[in-house]
Design a protein around this nucleic acid. Structure first.
Length: 537
DNA sequence: TCGCGCCCTG
DNA sequence: CAGGGCGCGA
């Protein structure tokens, strides 16, 4: 959205060309036997065509934090008959993106990270994103799935310096990794241990993040106090994740090397000796070779024994155990906020490995040996549950990108279509709810969009959460709440102005909402994510 | 002509 | 939720 502030009625329609005054001879809801008369809302839109270049971040001159912390009035006091919304006075500019307001520091760091890691696929969209805000140092995080024909990124000189620095650091790490690989290859003859290489890699990672932290400290000095502590925790996690990834890399290579030696007839007495090399350095954590030491994501402490598990053959129950016993187990949205996608997922090294690895089964579509009875050919109930949770982040996912979140799944044409269809159904429910509540708001006399405030206590959110997150084992991100609010406001405004009498009146709203899509966190790709969903009794 | 995605139905 | 219809844009 971000058209900035409350628009006067005369300038509401930001897409006048999309509201052609086509003559229609039937009332909107009239059913025609001969030919179905219905709204053509999105018809003919190419895939993800709503994903226009994002609206540049609002230049709000630092007022956004203040606005974001405005205390809403108690809706029950003002609108007792509107339990699904809360109302505030219209002095706040709710068009400010909440994460821009509250996490600007983190975002700038994310940008730095993404720029530094822009070889990684996840950061392509971020690079694209920064165009829209070329004059602002804090571009938005809500990048999208990678789009075709991404324009080249123009950067300021200042940015160039930072980026080059980051690149240097990353390349340094890469060099170390390459060196490590070469050494490992040489080790086939010399049989040294990889521990020295491991130390150097860990050291490089530490240097990388400590320098980032230092930059952030300078940037944030005098501005934020509490944010720094949170960022500290966040960075610790990031460092941990990447170090773990590096260790995994080394260990796996070591194992492979050892195995090849065994296969070649060399009489190595104890393969597991590699564990004793590593584990003492990692605070005594036991090693599990099936999936690494521990997962490079917020799911710390998961049983990675399941990492190589075969997909369950039986139809799994669609339950998760994120918060089975208490809410503490629930994955907090605040964690998401402080984990940019590039950090939540695989480490730098894992990304490199993935880039050169054999393509994931999900990336190739094959109809050759389709067997509808083969569970591997069908998306499971857990997949559906996961998809619904992904909807919290992206309403219009790129199907190609989407499949990456089901790395174990061998997609066929049918299952790909099924996945896309799911999201279509999700949207349908979503927009139906929006229309319903927006009409109710109009009926109740709400006139200004700023009066519509959606919180977790709002009825509309509860309704949506019930649908997408039935057992509430997953905490919807704050960002989703905000998107719901914006959607509701758009619908409300359109209905208020009578746009809903026109054909295709929802289409411009879809275009707006599409721009609020966020990248899906990388931990959705983790095998353990599905495990947790399925393990719930 | 084809593919996409909403719309409608069951 | 899935199947099919349908209009639209490429």
């Amino acid at each position: 959205m971000s058209s900035g502030g409350a628009l006067p009625p005369t300038s509401f329609n930001p897409f006048p060309y999309l509201f052609p005054t086509q003559p229609h001879f039937f009332t909107p809801n009239q059913r025609i036997k001969m030919k179905r008369q219905r709204q053509r809302v999105d018809a003919g839109e190419p895939r993800n065509s709503y994903q226009q270049p994002r609206v540049p971040p609002k230049q709000d001159n630092g007022s956004s934090i203040q606005q974001a912390t405005a205390i809403p009035l108690n809706v029950n006091q003002l609108f007792p008959n509107l339990p699904w919304m809360q109302v505030v006075d219209d002095q706040t500019d709710e068009k400010v993106e909440p994460e821009e307001a509250m996490h600007s520091i983190v975002e700038s760091q994310e940008n730095e990270m993404n720029q530094g890691l822009e070889d990684a696929p996840e950061s392509n969209a971020s690079a694209t994103e920064s165009i829209a805000s070329s004059t602002s140092s804090s571009s938005r995080r809500k990048n999208n799935a990678p789009r075709k024909n991404s324009p080249s990124v123009e950067k300021t000189n200042e940015d160039d310096v930072d980026i080059d620095n980051d690149r240097l650091r990353v390349e340094e790490s890469d060099d170390i990794k390459k060196e490590g690989n070469e050494s490992i290859e040489n080790e086939r003859d010399n049989t040294p241990t990889p521990s020295s290489k491991l130390d150097s890699i860990i050291e490089a990672q530490k240097n990388l993040y400590s320098s980032i932290m230092e930059q952030q400290r300078i940037l944030g000095e005098g501005k934020v106090g509490n944010e720094l502590s949170v960022m500290g925790a966040f960075l610790k996690q990031a460092i941990l994740s990447n170090v773990i990834g590096s260790i995994d890399e080394i260990v796996n290579q070591w194992i492979e090397m050892e195995r090849s030696k065994v296969d070649a007839g060399e009489d190595r007495k104890d393969q597991s000796s590699s564990t004793s090399i590593i584990s003492p350095n990692i605070s005594g954590n036991p090693l599990s070779f099936s999936g690494g030491i521990f997962p490079p994501n917020p799911f710390i402490g998961l049983n990675m024994e399941d990492n190589l598990r075969k997909r369950k053959l039986e139809s799994p129950s669609i339950k998760s155990k994120f918060s089975r016993d208490n809410d503490d187990n629930k994955i907090p949205s605040s964690l998401f906020n402080y984990f940019p996608g590039a950090m939540v997922g695989p480490s730098i090294f894992e990304k490199n490995r993935l880039a050169t690895a054999i393509p994931s089964p999900s990336m190739s579509e094959d109809n050759s040996d389709y067997d509808p009875d083969d569970p591997d050919c069908q998306l499971s109930g857990a997949d559906l549950k996961k998809s619904k949770l992904m909807f919290f982040y992206t309403r219009y996912p790129n199907p190609t990108n989407l499949k990456q979140y089901f790395p174990e799944f061998q997609f066929r044409k049918k299952s790909s279509g099924q996945l896309v269809k799911w999201f279509s159904n999700f949207r349908e429910f979503y927009y139906n709810q929006m229309e319903k509540y927006a009409k109710e708001a109009v009926a109740k006399g709400i006139r200004n969009r700023e009066e519509i405030i959606v919180t977790r206590d709002s009825e509309i959110f509860k309704q949506l959460n019930q649908h997408y997150n039935r057992n509430n084992h997953f905490e919807a991100p704050d960002r989703f709440i905000w998107v719901v609010q914006e959607t509701l406001r758009e619908f409300h405004e359109a209905i208020l102005l009578g746009k809903h009498e026109e054909p295709s009146w929802k289409k411009p709203i879809y275009k707006i909402i599409c721009r609020h899509d966020d990248p899906i966190p990388d931990f959705f790709k983790e095998n353990t994510f599905l495990d947790r969903l399925e393990q719930q009794p």
